[in-house]
């Protein structure tokens, strides 16, 4: 594993999406758009560039499965899980350390 914290938004969103199980490209893109998935709008170029680098780093692999429309599916490796866990721990620590500022609990105007 050779990712440096903090992870980029596309990497974080991709790992987060694949943490839920095997997914194909558009499913990852769709998850990433959700607030709980990172809330970012990725296009196919960014998505497959990110998947390519994550596969080269051994954090993601192609499952070898393909549906009837020839979509390829991807899944996290153990290293991928570890990288995501580290990033979530890091974010959690940041939130905890700054809780006294009261920023996290403020309600935003509609």
């Amino acid at each position: 594993m050779s990712l440096e914290a903090p992870l980029t938004a596309p990497v974080f969103a991709t790992l987060l999406s694949l943490a839920q199980g095997e997914k194909h490209g558009y499913a990852i893109m769709k998850d990433a758009r959700q607030p709980e998935g990172g809330g970012i709008a990725m296009g196919p170029g960014t998505l497959y560039g990110t998947l390519n680098r994550l596969m080269e780093q051994g954090l993601v692999l192609e499952t070898g499965l393909s549906d009837d429309q020839r979509r390829r599916y991807y899944q996290l490796t153990e290293s991928g899980h570890a990288a995501l866990t580290l990033e979530l721990d890091r974010l959690r620590a940041v939130v905890t350390a700054n809780a006294h500022l009261g920023l996290a609990t403020q309600e935003r105007p509609a």
Partner: peptide
């Protein structure tokens, strides 16, 4: 304009993903 290696490997998947996005 993508590097040929990247294009060969992912162009088909990118096309499918784009088609899915348009159908959504």
């Amino acid at each position: 304009l993508y590097p040929p290696r990247f294009r060969r490997r992912y162009a088909g998947q990118m096309h499918l993903t784009l088609r899915d996005a348009m159908a959504d």
